[in-house]
């Protein structure tokens, strides 16, 4: 059976990461399997985990009374999930629900924060990997907020 460092090594998030750092952060990680419908986290609950999706798909949702749940982003194979564990008070902003059989690496947020705090070099390595997808998502979220498809015509 592959160990967690091995799984980590094959995720795009860890591309180019040195072995020492990889082993260090692997100490905070575990392998998880989610069935369709399983929640990774719920809105308002403690955000204590950070995920690397290996296979599958997770929907980020919010629930509107009377209208049901709305998905505003799907996170798929090779992508990262969870940002709320980075900033106090470490509380999830949205629901995250597996919509397919999903395999992921789950990091303990507190553990990972601790290692970043203890060694700023590790912290910087992590930041360089968190920030690009988060900024890309922010850019996409802005485009979605503008509702620009309405402005197109044939």
């Amino acid at each position: 059976m592959k160990d967690i460092a091995d799984l980590l090594r094959h995720h795009p998030f860890a591309e180019g990461l040195d072995e020492d750092t990889l082993s260090l952060i692997a100490g905070c990680a575990k392998n998880v399997v989610l069935q369709p419908g399983d929640y990774l986290h719920r809105e308002g609950a403690a955000a204590d985990s950070f995920y690397l999706v290996r296979h599958g798909a997770v929907a980020l949702e919010t629930f509107v009374p009377g209208r049901g749940s709305f998905t505003f982003l799907t996170v798929k194979s090779g992508e990262i999930l969870g940002a709320d564990w980075l900033i106090p008070p470490y509380r999830s902003s949205f629901d995250a629900r597996a919509i397919e059989l999903t395999r992921a690496i789950a990091f303990d947020g507190k553990c990972l924060r601790g290692k970043c705090e203890a060694d700023p070099r590790v912290g910087y390595e992590m930041m360089k990997r968190f920030i690009p997808p988060l900024v890309k998502r922010l850019q996409s979220a802005r485009m979605q907020a503008l509702g620009m498809y309405d402005a197109a015509n044939a």
């Binding site: 749940s69 799907t74 890309k136 996409s140």
Partner: peptide
């Protein structure tokens, strides 16, 4: 699509990032 109900199993998000797929 930019937003969807639970019946939608496709991608949700902006179209451009899908280029990487």
């Amino acid at each position: 699509v930019e937003r969807a109900g639970p019946e939608w199993t496709g991608d949700v998000g902006y179209v451009t990032p899908l280029l990487s797929k």
